[in-house]
Amino acid sequence: MRRLLAAMALVLLPMAAQAATLYLAPTGNDQADGRTAQTPLATLAAAVARAQQAPAGEETRVIVLPGVYRGQSVDIDGRRLQGRLTIAGTASDPAAFPAFLGDGTSAWLHYRGAEGRDTGLTVQALRVARYATAISLNGNRNDPAAFNRGTVLENLVLAQIGSDAGTAKPSTAAIRLVNAKDTVVRGVFFHTIRNTPRDTCGGLHAIYLASHSTGARIEGNTFQDFCGSAIKLRDDSGGATIRANHFRDADGAPGIEEWFCDMDRTSECTKAGGECPSTGITVTGNDFGNLPADRRVLVRGSRVPRPWCPPGSAGAPRFLLDRGQTLP
């Protein structure tokens, strides 16, 4: 009987998820197996394609070996990714991070997922530079239930992010969240987040949370040399925690901004169903450097109740600040 019970217990134990490791190198080959550092792949797109072919529940870890990767970008289809995916360098020193260098156009990584589930995506220990947008996580902006959730972006360097003169549509974000919930952005160094020409620069943000991107944790990041709000929250993207960040060289821009685009008061809104305020955003322990007090945390937009917004959202505090203060 004891043996039978022991056998039954083993059957009932949860099975550990399988895991596969792929390697990426500037000198790699996408026809290689990618399973050792001696037989690496050349492009992140090839590694992600293999991850999307993995059996359900299999975790894929893409190890990005040191070096410079030029002109690469990747689209991840959340419907095809059935297991966790980690994309990571191995260095602890940011000066040694592998670098993805673009040409000032497109996004380096674009995740599309509107299935209302965790992405399983983690990106770590990389440098991404000279892209219009570094990372874009996109759910369905018009359906709060069609979200993606739980992406972790940590220990990254994002530099020279923005679009150049002549681009048809200026960039709006280094990291863009659209109905992307519970995203973690931690320990990221944002440097030179700028569009050219200068008159398009104010619309570019280091982190832009929009369309129900609730519950974000933005912690321990540094924002150096930016010309639009470093962190912008829009359209029901509340419940975020913004903690222990450093803001430097803001070029007159706010550190943190919440904007409710009220379609009854302005023609700037682009969402047919109407937007809503973002409320309950905790802002604590941040170092705003020499930013003027009125530019550290800024609220823009109406406080008039709108029938399409949650009850009470017009009057709820947008920000919960240190020492029990609220705004507004």
Rank of each mutant, 00 (worst) to 15 (best):
D236A: 14
A244C: 07
A230Q: 01
A230H: 09
I218P: 00
F223Q: 03
S229H: 04
R217E: 11
G215A: 07
G220M: 09
D225V: 09
I231L: 15
Q224Y: 14
G239P: 03
E219H: 10
G238W: 08
N221R: 10
G238A: 04
C201K: 06
S213A: 13
A244G: 13
T241N: 12
T241Y: 11
S237C: 09
A216Y: 05
H212L: 01
G215Q: 06
C227I: 06
F223W: 03
D235Q: 12
L204D: 03
R217M: 10
A230K: 06
F223M: 05
I231M: 13
C201I: 00
E219K: 01
A244E: 15
I218G: 02
C201S: 13
D199A: 09
R243M: 10
D235G: 11
G215E: 08
I231R: 03
L233F: 15
H205L: 02
F223G: 03
E219M: 03
I218F: 11
G215C: 11
R234A: 12
R243T: 12
D236H: 12
G202R: 03
E219C: 00
F226A: 09
Q224G: 00
S213K: 05
D236K: 07
R243G: 05
R217F: 02
C227R: 07
R198Y: 05
A230G: 11
T222C: 06
A216W: 01
T200A: 10
A230W: 05
G228W: 00
H205Q: 11
L204V: 02
F223A: 10
I242A: 10
Q224H: 15
G239Q: 08
E219V: 13
G202D: 01
N221M: 08
A230E: 05
T200N: 10
E219Y: 01
Q224T: 07
